[in-house]
Design a protein around this nucleic acid. Structure first.
Lengths: 197, 197
DNA sequence: TCCAAAAACTAATATCCGTTAGTTTTGCAT
DNA sequence: ATGCAAAACTAACGGATATTAGTTTTTGGA
């Protein structure tokens, strides 16, 4: 049988993980079998175990790589010299870009994390909670600044985070709008609303 | 073994379906076994088949019952005598109420529909597409009216629909805010934005 | 060209899955 | 009390699952 080829900028393990992310997104983690993943790689299922530790490990790698990217970006944004609304805009734009650039991985991290095993599950949820509460702090500062309306900050965070997830459904309409227009639309909607003044 | 008791306002099948919705939400459709569902009902797995046709049928019932509720409400809203922004507000409020009142079922319809079998899968996706495009029409009218900003209507619909889904994560924070405040916050955020004028 | 290491293969294991068949128990109406 | 229908039970089916063990093939460097 044909061998798996390593990508130019990554190991064979990376290639397998990338393909796994695609399948996990389309069919879900549990519904994706190792045999199916192997077939997609042009190989028998047991051969995968020359490169990876387990099916669970694939999910872990996907989820935590994405979590790291978001945490790092939040860290940079927090410490940057910007107004609160500018920081919010940066965060929203980053979420949109991640959604468009590594769609499968972000989708899996958003939806399939529940199949992580302990202690990874607990760790992952902790990171999420921390990310959320740092955004809440940001918005709370903005309200004190009088830069933002006196809205419930936790509700605002959930609304923003969920709204950017909406790009899951955008994949079907990619051609209708440029990436810039898409970003600008969503940022404007979330920061300035839909209704004309 | 103890018998399953019918609820006051529903058959035994309804009780099983309700419990299934809870498990499907927590663990996912595929990861939920009929043995596990049976255990939760205090019964052996084969006994369930005295009341239901199959595992798939449970998922179908959940998804299409929710789809019907949303379609009916949209129909009523469309034909009501209201301004476009008022209609949008009604839709957003209905989504929030459904999310809070039949959380498990809405969650399953939102996330587990991909495990529906044909022809149910195709039918379901068609209904979703139709719902979306009716919302696009509504927003397009609002833009022509100059009631709404000249935003890309499809993007706005995805943003709104995704934002209300955010209440998935709200379940943990239920006590912090009243339902009315929650609704008002989200409606105001989506229609008028976050930034003070 | 040859040899070691990498990576493929086949075979097999134990476990779980949804569902069916056949049987026994339960509970209500007569 | 009795009998019938509803609903529980046990046993079992065929098939799919992730993974391991052991073996063969492929590949790239000396």
């Amino acid at each position: 049988m044909a061998k798996i080829k390593a990508a130019l900028n990554g190991t064979i393990k990376d290639v397998i993980t990338k393909k796994a992310a695609g399948l996990f997104r389309k069919k879900g983690f549990i519904a994706t079998s190792m045999r199916e993943l192997a077939e997609n790689m042009g190989v028998e299922a047991p051969s995968l175990y020359n490169h990876i530790g387990s099916k669970s490990e694939l999910l872990q790698n996907i989820c935590f790589k994405i979590a790291d990217e978001f945490n790092n970006h939040l860290q940079v944004t927090e410490t940057s010299q910007q107004t609160i609304p500018q920081k919010l805009e940066l965060l929203i734009r980053f979420h949109i870009q991640m959604m468009l650039q590594v769609f499968d991985e972000v989708y899996v991290a958003n939806h399939e994390w529940k199949h992580l095993k302990e202690p990874y599950l607990g760790n992952f949820l902790l990171q999420r909670k921390s990310y959320e509460s740092r955004m809440v702090k940001l918005i709370t500062s903005g309200i004190k600044n009088k830069a933002l309306k006196n809205i419930h900050p936790h509700v605002a965070v959930l609304t923003i985070l969920s709204a950017v997830r909406g790009l899951e459904f955008w994949q079907r309409h990619k051609k209708e709008v440029t990436v810039e227009a898409l970003e600008n639309n969503i940022v404007d909607h979330l920061l300035n609303g839909l209704i004309k003044n």
